[in-house]
Amino acid sequence: MSLLVFGRTGQLARALQRQEAVTALGRAEADLLDPAACAAAIHAAAPRAVINAAAYTAVDRAEQEETLATRINAAAPAAMAQACAARGIPFLHVSTDYVFDGSGDRPWREDDPVGPLNAYGRSKLAGEAAVRAAGGRHVILRTSWVFSAEGANFLTTMLRLSETRDSLSVVADQLGGPTPAAEIAATLLRMAAALCAGQGGGTYHYAGAPAISWAGFARAIFAGAGRDVTVTDIPSSAYPTPARRPLNSRLDCAKLRADFGITPADWRAGLSAALELLEA
Rank of each mutant, 00 (worst) to 15 (best):
Q17V: 02
R61I: 09
L32A: 07
Q11L: 15
V114K: 11
R61K: 11
Q19T: 07
P264R: 00
A24K: 05
A76Q: 07
T23N: 09
P246D: 12
T232F: 10
C38Y: 04
F154R: 08
A83G: 04
D97V: 15
D31Y: 01
S249F: 09
A134I: 11
A75V: 07
L275R: 02
S148H: 01
V5R: 03
G26M: 00
D112L: 05
R109A: 10
T157I: 08
A69P: 01
I89C: 01
D105E: 14
R257C: 14
V5A: 02
A238M: 13
V50L: 05
T179D: 06
H93A: 03
L271F: 10
A130C: 08
A53T: 01
P35T: 01
N118W: 11
G261P: 11
Y206Q: 14
A21K: 14
R18G: 04
A86C: 04
V22F: 05
L92V: 08
E63H: 06
G10C: 02
W214I: 10
V170M: 07
A41R: 01
A49C: 08
T203F: 05
D259E: 13
L251I: 08
R268W: 13
S148L: 01
P47N: 10
S103H: 04
A24P: 09
R8G: 03
R190S: 11
L188A: 02
R106C: 12
L4W: 12
R109P: 08
R165W: 02
G176C: 05
S95R: 11
A28F: 06
A215R: 14
G177S: 15
L247V: 06
P113H: 00
G270V: 09
T241Y: 07
G177V: 14
H43I: 11
R14K: 07
C253V: 08
M1G: 09
D31A: 01
P116R: 03
E20G: 09
R245S: 11
I51Q: 04
A192N: 06
T187D: 00
G202E: 13
A119H: 14
A192L: 10
H43Y: 14
T57H: 15
S123V: 08
G135A: 15
R142N: 07
T23S: 12
A41P: 02
A211K: 08
E128I: 09
R160C: 12
M191C: 06
A83D: 02
A152P: 13
L189M: 02
L117V: 10
L92Q: 03
G226C: 07
K255I: 15
G200R: 06
I51Y: 04
V22Y: 03
R87Y: 02
S169H: 15
L33I: 00
A13V: 06
R165P: 03
L12D: 03
E66M: 07
I51F: 06
A58Y: 09
A185H: 11
A273K: 04
L4H: 09
G10T: 00
L117N: 12
A55M: 01
W145Q: 04
L3M: 06
A225Y: 00
V131R: 07
D266C: 12
A220Q: 14
S167Y: 13
A24D: 06
S272L: 15
A193Y: 05
A258S: 11
G26T: 05
D34L: 02
M80K: 04
D166H: 14
G198V: 04
T9W: 05
A186E: 14
I72Q: 05
A152W: 13
R227P: 00
R137P: 15
D252T: 11
V22M: 06
Y239A: 13
F154P: 06
